[in-house]
Every structure is written in structure tokens, then in C-alpha cells.
């Protein structure tokens, strides 16, 4: 498998992979910019679709199309592209809340900070030496920036559901990172990871649902009364 990855990748495929990665970046920024929760979730779903295609690309680059890649893609598509967004959208529908109002960091501000993070990620990965040859030089910077933007969403939004999306974006970043060592992780574990993510989101959705019940909407600003006494 290692040998497979070190095999030179054809140019056309290379361009395609790079394009997909750039698309992921743009989707990140779009998620930062949107105020509508549903849009945000759909964008996320699309990002997952793009990401799940990548293992196939990586697999085709090698001599044989690995069963590994197919399983991974299948799992990702089913879980991330369909199931998770479905759950989240359902929560939104029952929750009767559509927009992120007044985030900690404004939407324009978020995009600017997100762009800065992308820049930082590229700067950082220029200093990283990846052992072995990745499928694309863009992979690591995109992974890191996705991760950072996920964190940014997590931190700067009030709505619980947006935080879930943020967490999922973060997870996507890690997934991208993991693509660079497709071979080292047995399939079982990869699927286990995916499943865990799914269950995690499932539980989160339940909790979000409870938050809605408790407060009639999903604003985490209502949480966190004063904790530590003076």
C-alpha cells in the first residue's frame, strides 16, 4: 500500500484532486458566511460528498482500486452525506429555529478570520515534512484549515446545532488528514471511527433536542449561568 501511494499520480487526476480540495476550502468559507442553519447543514453535506470521493481518487492512483477506498467512501456517503444531515435538518425543523442570530463573531468577520486561518494553515504546512508522498500537496493544508474553521464555528456560534456542524467540520479536517495514511488503519477501525462520529452526532442531536425543550430554542447563551463563586 505504501508502495502504491508512492506511485506517481497522473496529472489529470492530480488536477481533479486539487480542485476537490479547493472546493472543500470554499465550502468551509461558505459555511462561515451563512446565517441560515439549513444552508449550513446542506453545505456540510456537500463537503462530505466531496471528501468521500477523495479516497476513490487516491485508490485509482494506485495500481488497483482498493476495496478499502470503496468501503470508506460508501461509509462516508451513507453516514455523513445522508444520515447526519437528515438528523440535523429534522432537529431544525422541529426546533423552529432557522438562523444564527448575533454570533460572537459576525459573519463577515468570521470569513475574514477563516481566510486568515487558511493562510496560517498553508504557512504551517509549508514547514511540515510529510513522510511519504501524499496524494496532493494541498491535502495537509486543506485538512488543517478545515480543522481550524471547524473550531472557529464551534467557538463563535451560539446555536447548539451550529456547534454540532462545527464539530463535524472539524472531524472532516481530521478525516482529510487521515487520508494521508489510508494504509495504516485497518478498515475495521476506520469504520469504527465513522460509526463513532455518527453516534456522537446522534447523541448530540438528542441533547440539542433537549436543549430546545428546556429553553424553547437552542441558544447556548441561555446556558452557563454564573458558575464559580467569587
Amino acid at each position: 500500500m505504501l508502495a502504491a501511494l508512492t506511485h506517481p499520480i497522473p496529472d489529470s487526476l492530480h488536477t481533479a484532486i486539487d480542485g476537490a480540495l479547493v472546493l472543500v476550502l470554499l465550502l468551509n468559507l461558505a459555511m462561515l458566511a451563512t446565517s441560515r442553519l439549513a444552508t449550513c447543514i446542506r453545505l456540510f453535506s456537500f463537503q462530505c460528498l466531496v471528501i468521500s470521493v477523495l479516497p476513490i481518487a487516491a485508490a485509482t492512483a494506485s495500481d488497483a482500486i482498493g476495496i478499502h477506498g470503496f468501503f470508506l467512501m460508501g461509509g462516508t456517503v451513507v453516514l455523513k452525506v445522508f444520515l447526519i444531515p437528515f438528523i440535523l435538518l429534522r432537529v431544525i425543523r422541529t426546533g423552529d429555529i432557522q438562523r444564527e442570530v448575533q454570533p460572537y463573531l459576525g459573519f463577515t468577520g468570521s470569513v475574514v478570520v477563516g481566510a486568515m486561518m487558511i493562510g496560517g494553515a498553508f504557512a504551517l504546512s509549508s514547514r511540515l515534512v510529510l513522510p511519504g508522498q501524499a496524494m496532493s500537496t494541498l491535502l495537509i493544508p486543506v485538512a488543517i484549515s478545515t480543522l481550524l474553521i471547524g473550531l472557529l464555528i464551534l467557538v463563535s456560534r451560539y446555536k447548539a446545532i451550529t456547534q454540532v456542524v462545527g464539530y463535524l467540520v472539524l472531524e472532516n479536517g481530521i478525516y482529510l488528514f487521515g487520508l494521508s495514511l489510508l494504509h495504516a488503519m485497518p478498515l475495521l477501525v476506520e469504520l469504527g471511527i465513522l460509526l463513532d462520529v455518527f453516534v456522537g452526532v446522534f447523541v448530540m442531536a438528542i441533547v440539542v433536542y433537549h436543549i430546545r425543550q428546556e429553553f424553547d430554542h437552542m441558544d447556548t447563551q441561555n446556558l452557563a449561568p454564573m458558575k464559580e463563586p467569587a
Binding site: 473550531l151 464551534l154 463563535s156 456547534q163 447556548t220 447563551q221 446556558l223 452557563a224 458558575k227 464559580e228
Partner: peptide
């Protein structure tokens, strides 16, 4: 920070 809001907690980690 004083309220220990969730966002801040995540910021701690980051």
C-alpha cells in the same frame, strides 16, 4: 470566562 461558557471552554482546548 467567568461564566465558563461552552465556547470559552473549547477555546481553552484550542
Amino acid at each position: 470566562v467567568r461564566r465558563g461558557s461552552i465556547q470559552v471552554c473549547v477555546v481553552y482546548v484550542a
